[in-house]
Each structure stands twice: as C-alpha cells, then as structure tokens.
C-alpha cells in the first residue's frame, strides 16, 4: 500500500504520494548541485566551494564578476526555461492524452520560431542591421506562441474541441510554421538565417539580469498555477465523458489548460529559444520516476527539465573550446540515454 498524504481545502485538494515526495526532495538537491557545478565550470574553473562562498557574498572580486555577471544569468534563465518547457509538456500530454504530444508537436514552439524569423526579416534595413531594439525579440516570440496556439484552438473548434482534433491540427500548423520559417530564412541573407537558426535550436547565450528579473516571477507564478490545476488534469485523463459526468466543464478546462501551457512555453522560449526535447521527454522521465498523478508529475518534471537545460548549456559552452554550441543541441544527448535506461529498467521489473 502506498503511503498517501491528503491535502484538502475549498479550492485545492491533493493526495500526495510520500515516496514521490522523497523523489522530489532528492531531485531538488540534484538541481542545487547542478546549479553550483555549472556555476563553477567554464573558461576558468572556480571550485564549487569557492562558488558557495561567492554566493554568500565573500569571494574575490574577479571570481565574483565571472560567476555573478557572466554565468549566473544564463544558468538561471536555462533553469527556468527548462522548468517551463517541461511543465507545459506535462500539461499538454495530459490534455491531449497522447504520449507524443509536446509544445513542439502542436506548433506552439514553431509559431514562436516563425515569429522570431519574421521579426528578423521585417525589422532589418537594407544593410541588414536591426531597426528596432533586440529587446523586442522575446515579445515577438511570446506573441507568436500565443497567436499560433489560438489559431490551432480556433481551427480545432467545431462545436467543442476534441483532443485528437487539437493535436492533428496542431501538427499541421506546426509543419506550416516551420515551412514559413524555412522560406523566410532562405529569402533573407545568410547571416540572418544563421542567427535565426541558433534561436530555433535554442540558446541562453544572450541572457541578462533584466531577463532573469522577468523570467523568474513569470515562470514561478505559472508553475504554482499549474500545481493548482492538477486535479482537473487528473480528471481529464479519464476521457471527456467521465470528466463531464464528474462535473468538469471539459471545454472550458481544456482551453484554460491550453492557455496556461502556451504562457509557459511562450515565456520560456522568449528568452531561451525553442529548446527541443525537454517538453516531450522530461514528463516521460518524471512519469517513470513517480507515476502519472499530476500532483507529483508536475514538480518532478519541472526539476528534470531544469536540470536538462542547465547541463546542456554547461556542456555547450565548455566542451568545445572557443566554439559555443547552443544548449538545444545537447538536451537530447543528455536526456535520451537516461530515458532509454529507464525504459529498459522498468521493463525488466
């Protein structure tokens, strides 16, 4: 018998599996360790102990500069972007009830990508330098994600939206958006294409403290919102009929969840680019660790997503000398072997 902890109030009720809570505790420690280690790795190695003393405010001036100004912002952005993508993937797989669903699959990321490519194409003058500030690019990405999600939802609506129709139309729109990006990139100059390509692969290279100040509160709020809606997600797993008969307004809930998911993806990719794999696989890894009840699935997915992107970014900026490889390249290289290991281990049980 599993040990369960029952949390209940008027707006919130949750059965928490204690063994899942233990897993979550372990993962949070892993997140902290990953955070400190990635602060210490880079062009110049600063030992983790030194990093801790810098964080508590007494390190040498030079090391403090490196850690706080160069490394910290991008690592925090990576962490929160990873969390956002993973949670949105978990929610989306819950809405659509298909293990292949992810923000990449139903076009939200592709929409953000298309918007960024269009932004670079529209606001360039004849010398190919931007006519507006780069700071507007995250806004373009967010708007692109939102507009695409609403487009997919609108096109899927015929007297209600079913999960299958949502995902199939999403797949179509995703392909369409990618095709648009490709054509725009081909039509523009090469360097613009490569800039757009780095963004589409996903990189936190240009993270700043200003971005950190936006991404932390936004993702944190959305994350707590996600925790509040877990029981609705659990209910959707039983299918529309059961959920309706248990008193859920299925269509309204689905729209609300989709919007939540879009907000998460939009704010994550706005600063990190469309990092792939995390939204798809972090929830699957989490599911294999703590089972599929969303109360534990969402926080565990968030931790795994955060760890994946921080590690991927650390490898990308430190392994290849002077070349900086975008973080999006390595999320799968780290995550996939671990997932395959879990897949094999679970089957042997």
């Amino acid at each position: 018998m599993k040990k369960l902890l029952n949390l209940q109030s008027r707006f919130y009720s949750q059965l928490i599996d204690l063994s899942a809570l233990k897993q979550l505790g372990i993962l949070i420690v892993v997140v902290a360790i990953t955070f400190i280690i990635s602060l210490s790795i880079g062009d110049s190695f600063i030992s983790p102990l030194k990093v801790i003393s810098i964080l508590s405010g007494n390190g040498s001036e030079f090391d403090t500069l490196i850690v706080q100004e160069f490394r910290m912002p991008r690592i925090i952005v990576a962490l929160f972007a990873g969390m956002g993508l993973a949670v949105s993937g978990a929610i989306l797989q819950g809405i659509i009830r298909n293990p292949l669903a992810s923000p990449d699959v139903i076009g939200i990321s592709a929409g953000a990508g298309g918007a960024v490519v269009a932004f670079l194409a529209i606001f360039s003058d004849t010398n190919y330098s931007l006519t507006v500030s780069m700071e507007w690019m995250p806004v373009a990405a967010f708007v692109g994600a939102l507009v695409t999600a609403l487009l997919v939802y609108g096109l899927s609506w015929t007297n209600g939206v079913t999960a299958t129709r949502l995902v199939m139309i999403g797949v179509g729109i995703a392909a369409f958006m990618q095709a648009t990006s490709t054509v725009l990139m081909l039509a523009g100059p090469i360097y613009q294409a490569s800039k757009a390509n780095i963004w589409i692969t996903g990189s936190v290279n240009s993270a700043t403290w200003e971005q950190v100040k936006i991404i932390i509160p936004v993702i944190a709020c959305l994350f707590f919102l996600s925790l509040l809606v877990t029981r609705h997600l659990n209910l959707q797993q039983f299918g529309d009929d059961v959920a309706t008969s248990l008193g859920q307004g299925v269509q309204k809930t689905r729209l609300a969840l989709l919007l939540l998911c879009t907000a998460l993806v939009g704010s994550a990719v706005a600063f990190s680019g469309t990092i792939g794999f995390v939204g798809l696989m972090a929830p699957h890894i989490a599911r294999r660790l703590v089972g599929s009840s969303f109360g534990s699935l969402i926080p565990v997915s968030a931790c795994i997503g955060g760890i994946l992107v921080v590690l991927a970014d650390t490898i990308g900026r430190s392994m290849f000398g002077s070349i900086e490889v975008p973080a999006g390249v390595f999320t799968a290289a780290i995550g996939a072997p671990y997932f395959i290991y879990l897949l094999i281990k679970m089957q042997k049980r």
């Binding site: 292949l100 792939g276 794999f277 798809l280 696989m281 699957h284 390249v329 390595f330 999320t331 799968a332 290289a333 995550g335 996939a336 072997p337 997932f339 395959i340 897949l343």
Partner: peptide, 9 residues
C-alpha cells in the same frame, strides 16, 4: 522518439 531525438541532437 527518444533515440530519434538523440541521433538528431
């Protein structure tokens, strides 16, 4: 999907 993503990356 996982192996495909690995190869792609």
């Amino acid at each position: 999907t996982a192996l495909g993503a690995l190869f792609y990356s």
